[in-house]
Simulated scan of single mutants.
Amino acid sequence: MKKQTALFLCLAASVAVAGCGKKSETQEKETTSMNMPAGELPPGHPPIGNQTQLPPGHPPINGTMGMPPQGMMGMGQMQPGMHPETMTKLTKPVNIPEEVKKTWKFADVVIIDKTTGKVVKEAKVKAGDKIKIGNTEIDILYIVPDLKLMNNEYTSATNEPNNPAVIVRAKENGKVTYEGPIYQKFQIFTINNPKYELGVKAVLKG
Rank of each mutant, 00 (worst) to 15 (best):
Q4Y: 06
A6V: 14
L7N: 00
F8L: 11
F8T: 10
A12Q: 15
A13Q: 15
V15Y: 13
V15I: 15
V17G: 13
A18E: 11
K23F: 01
E25A: 10
E28I: 04
M34Q: 07
L41G: 07
N50G: 04
T52E: 07
P55M: 01
P56H: 01
G57F: 07
M65L: 07
M67S: 10
Q70V: 13
M73I: 11
Q77P: 03
Q77E: 12
P80F: 07
T86V: 11
M87R: 15
K89E: 12
P97K: 13
T103P: 04
D108Q: 14
D113E: 14
T115G: 10
T116V: 03
T116P: 09
E122V: 07
V125D: 03
K126I: 01
G128M: 09
K130S: 06
K130C: 08
I131A: 08
G134F: 05
I138H: 10
V144K: 06
D146N: 10
N151K: 15
N151C: 02
N151E: 13
Y154P: 07
S156E: 00
N163Y: 09
P164D: 05
P164Q: 11
V166D: 04
V168P: 02
K171E: 05
G174A: 02
V176L: 08
Y178G: 04
E179C: 15
G180C: 13
G180L: 12
F186R: 14
I188E: 13
I188N: 10
P194V: 01
K195M: 01
Y196P: 03
G199K: 09
V200A: 11
A202R: 12
